[in-house]
């Protein structure tokens, strides 16, 4: 086996491990959605305010998942090692 193939293989493993970062936003945004639904159930007139706050917070929580995606995409498409 060549050195280049070994680098490609380990890049594939690294790209997969980087996406474990997707666990966090999944849990967090789910909690936010649940709390948002509860708040709307308690006060349906405030729905647009609640939804706007919830989407704002969820998009900020998305960021570290996107960081993991960036590292995975760099390892797949713009690999600096070969």
């Amino acid at each position: 086996m060549e050195g280049l193939d070994f680098i490609k293989a380990c890049s594939a493993i690294g790209a997969g491990i980087a996406m474990i970062a997707g666990v966090g936003p999944g849990i967090g945004q789910g909690f936010a959605a649940g709390k948002g639904a509860e708040a709307v159930g308690r006060q349906p007139e405030a729905q647009s305010d609640i939804v706007r706050t919830m989407l704002l917070g969820a998009a900020v929580a998305e960021t570290t998942g996107i960081y993991g995606l960036i590292v995975a995409l760099i390892l797949l498409f713009a690999n600096p090692f070969y």
Partner: peptide, 8 residues
């Protein structure tokens, strides 16, 4: 990085 990552 948030904006770049989402759009890319």
């Amino acid at each position: 990085f948030r904006l770049f990552g989402n759009m890319l």
